[in-house]
Computed example of a mutant assay.
Amino acid sequence: MRVTSAANPRVKQARRLRSGRERRATGRMLVEGERELARAVAAGVAVETLFLCPDHGGAAPPGLACEVVEVSPRVMARLAVRDNAPVVAVARIPERPLARLPRPPRPVYLVADRLEKPGNLGALLRSADGAGVDGVIVCGGDPWAPQAVRASLGTCFTLPLAVAEAEQALAWLGGLPVVVATPEAERLYTEAPLWGAIVVGREDTGVSEPWRRAATLRVRIPMRGAADSLNAAQT
Rank of each mutant, 00 (worst) to 15 (best):
R150A: 04
V90A: 15
W211S: 00
V178W: 05
V47S: 03
V3I: 14
A77F: 07
L170M: 14
P177L: 01
A38C: 07
A6D: 11
N8Y: 14
F51R: 06
V69N: 10
R24F: 02
P102E: 11
S229F: 06
D142Q: 03
Q13R: 15
H56W: 15
A123T: 09
G174M: 00
A43K: 10
T26M: 09
R18D: 03
E191R: 00
R82M: 02
T216G: 04
I221P: 13
T4C: 11
P9F: 12
G44W: 09
A40N: 12
G122F: 03
P193M: 07
L50F: 04
V178N: 02
A151D: 02
D204M: 11
T155Y: 06
L188W: 04
C156E: 01
R16W: 00
Y109W: 13
P146H: 03
R213T: 04
R106Q: 15
A40W: 05
T182K: 01
V31E: 12
M29K: 09
G174Y: 02
D83S: 15
R220Y: 01
R218W: 14
V133I: 05
M29F: 09
A46V: 15
K12R: 13
E191L: 09
R103K: 13
S19F: 09
L170N: 12
R15D: 06
V136I: 12
R187C: 06
